[in-house]
Design a protein around this nucleic acid. Structure first.
Lengths: 368, 368
DNA sequence: CAGCCAATGTACATCGATGTAAAAACGTGC
DNA sequence: GCACGTTTTTACATCGATGTACATTGGCTG
């Protein structure tokens, strides 16, 4: 039961502790015979590396933190899956933290959890301010996702403004004229919602459509209930939209439900489009058109950026205090594409896929 | 930039390293004046505890692992949220790991990730066998969720057999007679699916309905696409069910989509019920009846069980080798309840909620 | 076979925090 | 003012793995 240490393995194999360490770490200059003997001792005794010792010595843990507002928001869960996968390929372990959109939690994450056991942080901030970010000191290497708070940190996201503009133009192209932005908000500021709102307004302006501030439906959070409630409230107040630009798929799925309850057909009466391309939108009724970010790319790039910073941090700059060799903050844009499904295209377009068409013909037949 | 150590703080404050340590750890016998001086030095230098050192000395990390098959399965994401919350209240940090239902990954998790940096593991196994579990040696304290693989480990779950039986009885109570079990499988074995299948069969038997092996629709995984495909295949092969017992909500949501595409009305033609009560089922069209486990309770109990084991492990039993004082494996059952929504009850029942009723009347009017 | 280089292996110090044991400081009662 | 019991503080060893610097071995050249 007593824990097996390198010392025990060394004794058992009749070699020094360092040699055991060399075997474990795949050091080149170890003869095959020695390696074999040591390996047998390791297997025999059931030795496992003690991370505490290694960490203390190496100053690295191999653990990075992924910090998201809520794990049960599918977008973040799907993103987490990709991040974990990418990290694993680089022998990094991912510690997931959820902040509940709480500023204190996010600050703690920025500071490396008040201690020193994550080598880096991938943070999807919601409540942080640019000042928070700027005033952080000796924080671990950090990559921001989604919101670009300020220029001081590496950042990965899609071009939210352009994406929102394209989505809105798609709705306009369908002949829609009264388009509500669910989750939209005052477009000053650097957040994702603000950027998407800007794109929405840009598309309206380009099409010569008037912008009505009341068309922005603010929401407390980006989840289904909020989307459902916001749209219900707007309809109750007399709004008669012919399209909804929902700033994420959860809001859109909630909105679909409300439209159904109000007896409004999608997309005939109201076209709906979202952001994120979560799985739920591929199986909803109707299926949901959406802006699909390349999540795998977001994950991959975030990890790469982080690794670069981690390497920088590990190599004490030759000039010491001089910031030479430190790369300036990167701001990378990931591709997105419009995925058009029933909630804007209707059932007709689905005939592209023969199987779907067949099913749908069937559906049309008996679809009350 | 150089890291601040206790030594630096001690020098700055003019005391010994141990005194600084005492201050940090709220040791009682430190004079107020000393404490103040040390605290000032800490603040001044921006000292942060180095977990590596502490971990090495104390042998504990304060980190527990939550190991799930897939994070982007909403049930696990929602569960993770609760676990993280509960753990936080006990000053534990949660490391989430996803196994992709891969046996090797699950084994690695059981072994504490081949190293020693998690104090405990909460594992939701899918691919492990009882043998795997039995043969583990010096693994960290472990609590199993969902599947009871064998008696050797602590375990938390709902009474899956009973829950499935109740859900099936509900369907039978609606007058349904041809009930397919989506995700159902041969009911030998200890897995969740097996237990639910047993409950399904028990309910059929109790109602005097014949069991048709073809009514079990196996699925490769418990996700929406699998539910959609399994049901489509069954329908294509001529099955004409009047109800579906889906072994989780994801399968059910996928099934809803297929039924829609085949023009079958829910619940008029086919009633559908799932398990898990995920958010998506509260906003689907129709909304989804489901077996709702008390997820918060699962999380709370799992953490409590784990903490107990961790404490046991920390206190070297007085008798040393004797297993005295070690609690026998716990097998706890968490409450569940049937949540009935449109997919079995139809719209009528929803009239309990006036607002919903109104909306639905409206809906009936123009619902194509 | 001396001499040299490269390959291999070892002893020891070190990373940072904390437990142990004991010394120093302090206070109290006589 | 002294002995004694607390409280407060300190020096030092220790947790486990690994980097450094050096010792040893073996092979090969001339």
């Amino acid at each position: 039961m007593a824990r097996v240490r390198i010392k025990d393995v060394a004794r058992h194999a009749g070699v020094s502790e360092k040699t055991v360490s060399n075997v474990i770490n795949d050091y080149v200059h170890v003869s095959d015979r020695t390696r074999r003997v040591v390996q047998e001792a390791i297997d025999h005794l059931g030795y496992k590396v003690n991370l505490a010792g290694r960490h203390l010595r190496k100053g690295r843990t191999g653990i990075i933190a992924l910090v998201v507002p809520e794990l049960d928001v599918p977008y973040f869960a799907e993103l987490a899956r990709h991040v974990i996968r990418e990290a694993e390929q680089r022998s990094l372990t991912v510690l997931i933290h959820q902040t509940g959109a709480d500023r204190d939690h996010e600050l703690a994450a920025l500071a490396g959890f008040g201690s020193t056991f994550v080598d880096g942080v991938i943070l999807s901030p919601l409540a942080l301010t640019a000042d928070d970010l700027r005033s952080r000191t000796d924080a671990p290497p950090t990559v921001l996702l989604g919101e670009l708070l300020e220029e001081g940190a590496d950042h990965v996201a899609i071009d939210n403004e352009k994406a929102a503009r394209e989505a809105t133009e798609h709705l306009i192209g369908l002949g829609r004229r009264t388009i509500l932005a669910v989750g939209g908000r005052d477009d000053a500021g650097l957040g994702t919602a603000e950027a998407r709102t800007r794109g929405y307004r840009a598309a309206l302006a380009a099409a010569g459509l008037a912008f009505d501030p009341a068309a922005l439906l603010p929401v407390p959070s980006f989840r289904m209930p909020d989307g459902a409630e916001a749209v219900a409230r707007a309809l109750d107040e007399g709004a008669r939209p012919d399209a909804l630009l929902c700033l994420n798929d959860q809001l859109a799925l909630g909105a679909l439900r409300t439209l159904y309850e109000y007896g409004m057909r999608v997309p005939e009466d109201v076209a709906v489009i979202g952001f994120d391309d979560v799985e739920g939108g591929r199986f909803s009724t109707p299926t949901l058109s959406t802006v699909a970010p390349d999540k795998a790319a977001v994950a991959r790039i975030a990890i790469d950026l982080l690794r670069h910073r981690m390497d920088e941090a590990a190599t004490p700059a030759p000039g010491d205090t001089s910031p030479a060799g430190v790369r300036s903050p990167q701001d990378l844009v990931v591709a997105h594409r419009l995925v058009l499904r029933e909630s804007t295209e209707g059932a007709a377009r689905r005939s592209r896929d023969p199987q779907d068409a067949e099913r749908h013909a069937n559906d049309g037949e008996s679809g009350n």
